[in-house]
């Protein structure tokens, strides 16, 4: 009798734990669920619908006029800039993505070392996130004097593009590769300024690699190079995925992304809401496909430390 009682009460404790897990999880995430449906899913579905329509605003409400696939056709075939800007944005991303990931990884390993002024360096590396967003970025795109100034500085002091090109050509590198390298060098300042959050994420990851692993490797006589490739790199590989995704999303949604500007322009004074929504939808579909490919390719190669 007594024994039965204990079993029952144990069961009850277990059940209540399970229940607590469910109720707690539900309660804590409830605000987001409501918000997701009201302020994300609902507008998202509306955006899909609008992209097949023409939107007419009246003083009291709005009307939709069915257009079918016309908006999409217009965006892809008739609009003078859309396809060109779209490809340019994709190419730019393809050049910058590996550089951003590489640079932020590298910067995080440096900032993780012990040296004087480390706190100041960390603060500086994150500064672009504070400075380069929203309206500041938007005005920067249209500030011709500042651009001229920067162009002058960069062409005069830092990057001698032509000299580099002739050097590479003398060494008989293939032209495509030369272009890629030169593009990469030209976009270094952009890359450095776009890496703030990624550095932060890698840095946090580096901090969480247990010291004992390195100590064991030291005892076994592994060199620094081997330690990097056999310990640090695999331990951080999940974060590479995180950062690749963050970088893609960040570059696709930035205020100075030319396609974003084009979509906004189209919406406000161009071909109207329907077309701009169709453009945004195409854009989002491509982002989605790219993210999916990246995710499925990378996630198979990732080492998960348990």
């Amino acid at each position: 009798m007594k024994g039965g009682g204990t079993v029952a009460s144990k069961k009850k404790v277990f059940l209540s734990f399970d229940k607590r897990q469910k109720i707690g999880g539900f309660l804590f995430t409830l605000p987001f669920l409501i918000g997701f449906v009201l302020f994300f899913l609902y507008p998202f579905i509306q955006a899909v619908i609008i992209s097949f329509n023409e939107l007419v605003l009246t003083s009291t409400t709005f009307e939709l006029q069915w257009q079918g696939l016309e908006n999409y056709g217009y965006a892809l075939q008739i609009h003078p800039d859309f396809s060109r800007v779209f490809t340019e944005v994709l190419v730019k991303l393809a050049v910058e993505l590996p550089l951003i990931i590489g640079f932020s990884f590298f910067a995080a390993t440096i900032l993780n070392q012990e040296f004087k002024g480390r706190a100041v360096a960390r603060m500086l590396f994150f500064l672009p996130v504070i400075l380069g967003s929203g309206v500041v970025m938007k005005l920067e795109v249209t500030d011709y004097s500042l651009m001229m100034l920067q162009h002058l500085q960069e062409s005069s002091s830092m990057f001698q593009g032509d000299a580099l090109r002739s050097l590479f050509e003398a060494a008989r590198f293939p032209a495509g590769m030369v272009d890629f390298v030169l593009d990469a060098v030209q976009s270094l300042p952009t890359v450095i300024r776009a890496s703030g959050v990624q550095i932060l994420i890698f840095l946090a990851g580096l901090q969480s690699v247990p010291r004992e692993v390195y100590e064991a490797a030291d005892v076994e006589g592994a060199t620094g190079w081997e330690q990097f490739w056999l310990i640090t790199f695999p331990m951080l590989s999940p974060l590479i995925l995180t950062n690749v995704i963050y970088t893609i999303v960040d570059s696709f949604t930035a205020m100075n992304n030319e396609l974003v500007l084009l979509i906004r322009e189209t919406m406000l004074r161009g071909a109207g809401y329907g077309v701009s929504m169709a453009m945004a939808m195409l854009y989002f579909l491509v982002i989605g496909v790219i993210l999916f490919i990246v995710f499925s390719v990378l996630s198979r190669r990732i080492f998960y430390h348990v």
Binding site: F40, Y42, F44, Q46, F252, A280, M281, F284
Partner: peptide
């Protein structure tokens, strides 16, 4: 929600 550009759902 992070992946969808906010510009996409701004009009709705």
């Amino acid at each position: 929600t992070l992946v969808v550009p906010p510009q996409l759902i701004m009009v709705p």
